[in-house]
Write a protein that binds this DNA or RNA. Structure first.
Length: 478
RNA sequence: GCUCCUGUCGUCUAGCCUGGUCUAGGACGCAUGGUUCUCAUCCAUGUAACCCGGGUUCAAAUCCCGGCGGGAGCGCCA
């Protein structure tokens, strides 16, 4: 079982689950499920200052909402003793050391290097002193002078001619020069690991076989490889995903709009369409299908076919996809979604039967679009009486038409749509103008210039409400 | 500034590895038409791209070289 596929998603609970992290999670999940592997969730909360339980909960909830259930769960803050063991090991065997430079010194060093067109890296003067503990340094004059409590770094050979190479499943061979890296920070103290170190230790301890993550981590890879080597760990396989971009082709961020998965759920997007859409950002099915479920994606997913270039997040395409998914929802599913209350801009309190659901299903792209249909419950909004006017027809003609429609409905009701439509068509023929019948009726019922078929509205509203709104229209015209 | 990644319609992309079937295909969007009281749906049609320049070749989106463009990373954040 040692060569079982094991992948992980490692979000840090310093914000809501980001759409980019969600996409990375999705690709990890697809790869794991495709290969009978395990999908592991690891919360990277070594930065206790910024990590919160609130965001951790959001990450878990969002992942579940998307349907990306994990097989194993870890939290770095539960695993501190493990990091301590490995930090001590490196300190003891001389591969790591304490550095006492201050942040200011480091910043100055970097500034000088950049000004001198040199690659920015920390070449630590404490490296040769082999400090194994801060206590040693405390006794030395150096520490008081620098005012730094110190940090633990990995020794990196600044004169090395070696290239650090790795094969990326998506991009092919990538290499970096070891000497350009500088002495890497790995821990603030023996029990406070820093990102690159914690990742390496955890990936090893969790037996991670493939590291699938965003392209923004490519530059971290050689650093992590150096740490692996110092610790004597094997190198996992790497695959760096393209970034999700905003309209200006820079990494998607808040200024481009919503970035959190939870925001999209509140905006009225379905998890199925989010999954489908995110998958398309960087992966294309071998056929021309556009609509694919999570299970269908698992069947066809191929990590080697993932794209290299970043993909712009196009909300218009998401809207279309979401509309397609809404059309495929069953009555029960649609009703449940409409009543869920998750969508902040309008709370529907009741669903008026199957005809209502069938009408809505074709007409909304997002669940939150249901607010356009609030007139079904609350009656038409205030509208200008001019809206009732049909083309060049006079108020008298419109009133006359509405009165005749009223008479028809008083007689036959609204339950039989076919019959009602037939009667209205007869009236249209009499008046030699179908529009004169349907337009004022539709406006009287909806109060809007664009709305569903008035016969459908009347049918859903029922006889009494329909007549009430028609009378309202007639009154408006005086 | 340094390092790395990347470059096909407005957008997501197929094709590129294994040159010809590519007068570059699909989808979203947009436009037009049909249905129609309006809108939406649906149907049909159209719109629009191989970053540039050399080279190799009978033949290049596809191979090679050189430019240019875009992005990301460069923390005692992750």
């Amino acid at each position: 079982m040692s060569n079982q596929i094991r992948v992980r998603i490692a979000p840090s609970p310093t914000g809501y689950l980001h759409i980019g992290t969600a996409r990375t999670a999705l690709f990890n999940y697809l790869f794991a499920k495709r290969n009978n592997g395990k999908f592991i969730l690891r919360i990277e909360d070594t930065d206790l200052e910024r990590s919160t339980k609130y965001y951790e909960d959001d990450i878990l909830d969002s992942l579940k909402w998307l349907g990306l259930e994990w097989d194993e769960f870890y939290k770095q803050s539960d695993r501190l003793p493990i990091y301590t063991k490995y930090v001590k090991q490196l300190l003891d065997n001389g591969k790591a050391f304490w550095c006492y430079h201050t942040k200011e010194e480091l910043a100055n060093e970097q500034q000088e290097q950049m000004a001198g067109k040199q690659p920015p890296r920390h070449l630590c003067s404490y490296k040769g002193e082999n400090h194994k503990s801060p206590a040693y340094a405390e006794a030395s004059a150096g520490r008081q002078e620098t005012g730094s409590k110190g940090i633990i770094r990995l020794k990196v050979d600044e004169n090395s001619e070696r290239k650090i190479k790795f094969r990326d499943i998506i991009r092919g061979d990538i290499e970096f020069e070891e000497k350009l890296l500088g002495d890497l920070s790995i821990a603030k103290d023996e029990s406070t690991p820093l990102y690159n170190f914690a990742v390496v230790v955890d990936d090893y301890e969790n037996n991670i076989s493939h590291i699938i993550r965003g392209e923004d981590h490519i530059a971290n890879t050689p650093k992590q490889i150096l740490i692996q080597e110092a610790l004597g760990f094997d190198m996992p396989q790497y695959a760096h995903l393209p970034l999700i971009l905003g309209q200006d082709r820079s990494k998607m961020s808040k200024r481009h709009g919503a970035t959190a998965v939870v925001e999209y759920s509140k905006l009225g997007y379905l998890p199925q369409s989010m999954v489908n859409f995110m998958a398309m950002l960087g992966f294309t099915p071998p056929d021309d299908r556009q609509i694919l479920s999570l299970d269908e994606l698992i069947e066809i997913f191929d990590l080697e076919k993932v794209h290299k270039g970043g993909a712009v997040f196009d909300i218009k395409k998401l809207d279309w996809l979401n509309g397609e998914y809404i059309k495929r929802l069953s009555d029960d599913e649609l009703e449940k979604a409409l009543l869920s209350g998750i969508h902040h801009n309008y709370q529907l309190t009741e669903v008026m039967g199957k005809p209502f659901l069938n009408m809505v299903r074709e007409r909304i792209k997002k669940i939150s679009d249901i607010k356009e249909f609030e007139f079904f419950l609350d009656g038409p909004n205030e509208y200008e009486k001019g809206l009732l006017k049909w083309k060049e027809r006079t108020d008298e003609e419109v009133t006359g038409s509405l009165s005749k429609v009223r008479d028809i409905i008083e007689k036959i009701g609204t339950d039989d749509k076919d019959k009602l439509r037939a009667e209205l068509d007869v009236l249209g023929k009499e008046l030699e103008d179908r529009g004169l019948v349907y337009w004022p009726l539709r406006v009287a019922l909806s109060g809007m210039k664009a709305s569903p078929d008035p016969v459908d509205i009347a049918n859903i509203l029922g006889k009494e409400k329909t007549l009430e709104h028609i009378r309202g229209g007639i009154e408006k015209l005086g």
